[in-house]
């Protein structure tokens, strides 16, 4: 079948094997570069496994040290009792759990509506305006804002005038939640397909109607994910509460008084020389981690139905 032109003198296939040997394309497992690759792969596995060790150590300690009280027979006392003083035995973390929930509630009530409204402007109304890009940039800067500075800020604004209170603690947490909510909600709204909005405009909707009836319902899973993550983060915060809500040994009775929180209880009890208090610090840690994880898991569940 060969139809070579007899006049052609150049035959590229005719090079002798001796001049240019065929490269060996088989995998050479003992070649230095393959060994190096294998070594680095092993190192990466090691790094990944090592990075998981602290998490398991923390969880183990929480369950061993805190689990005996939280899942033990005196669970009711632990969950509702007042923190013990000095050498006192027993006691619980009731005021701290309630205080944390109240302050996170205040922070949510402030930051979620404000954050979603702001994200509507950033994500739907005028995404490219100068106001939007400035706000977006500042929101990103605020996510890296040291949480303790939120406490310092609220101290300067509220505590100096009105004293330590649950309200001040809630506002400090709201400052930290706001950027998370804004950025997550904006991203969720930006993913709503343009054609859905166009269809609504085509039927004569105003922008407000498009946002309320099309954009928000479609972006809801994404928004809720962001909100849940923000709540989880706020519940675990302690630095901003340190000198805004302070601490209290009793149940909160009004929003204008110093209030206990789980994280400050852990901080205060961690340095105490009493066995009982340290045990309660672990118990409170377990409770706090469970609350934070609950919101994290909720964030995953609601985020599953994303567009």
């Amino acid at each position: 079948m060969r139809t070579m032109n007899p006049t052609s003198t150049i035959d590229l296939t005719a090079r002798p094997e001796e001049i240019r040997p065929r490269p060996n394309l088989d995998r050479q497992t003992l070649e230095p570069r393959a060994l190096k690759s294998g070594f680095l792969t092993g190192l990466t596995w090691l790094a990944a496994v090592l990075a998981a060790v602290p998490l398991f150590s923390v969880i183990y300690m929480l369950l061993i040290q805190g689990g005996s009280r939280l899942f033990g027979s005196d669970v009711v006392e632990v969950l509702t009792g007042l923190p013990p003083a000095g050498f006192e035995m027993g006691g619980g973390i009731g005021p701290a759990i309630l205080g944390t929930l109240v302050m996170v509630g205040i922070a949510s009530a402030i930051s979620i509506p404000l954050g979603i409204l702001a994200s509507i402007y950033l994500g739907v109304l005028e995404p490219k305006s100068r106001l939007a890009s400035t706000s977006r940039f500042l929101a990103k800067v605020l996510t890296g804002f040291p949480s303790i500075l939120a406490g310092v800020f609220v101290y300067a604004v509220l505590v100096i005038r009105f004293g330590y209170s649950a309200m001040a603690g809630g506002v400090a947490l709201a400052v930290l939640m706001l950027p998370t909510v804004v950025l997550a909600a904006e991203e969720a709204m930006a993913q709503v397909p343009q054609r859905m909005k166009d269809a609504a405009y085509g039927m004569g909707c105003t922008q407000t109607q498009v946002i309320l009836k099309v954009v928000l319902p479609t972006a809801l899973p994404g928004i809720l994910t962001g909100v849940m993550l923000a709540i989880a983060g706020a519940a675990g915060e302690s630095a901003p509460l340190l000198f805004t809500a302070l601490f209290s040994n009793y149940y909160i009775s009004e929003l204008a008084e110093p209030t206990a929180s789980l994280s400050i209880l852990i901080y205060n009890f961690s340095g105490m020389p009493f066995e009982n208090q340290i045990e309660l610090a672990w118990t409170a840690s377990l409770a706090l981690v469970l609350i934070v994880l609950m919101f994290n898991i909720l964030a995953r569940i609601v985020g599953r139905s994303k567009v």
């Binding site: 998490l55 923390v58 675990g236 852990i266 901080y267 840690s285 706090l288 981690v289 934070v292 994880l293």
Partner: peptide, 17 residues
């Protein structure tokens, strides 16, 4: 999950572990 553990819990873990 590592990111979700509150700072103060890591502090406690640091002191006792």
């Amino acid at each position: 999950m590592l990111a979700a553990i509150p700072s103060v819990v890591f502090g406690l873990w640091g002191i006792y572990v």
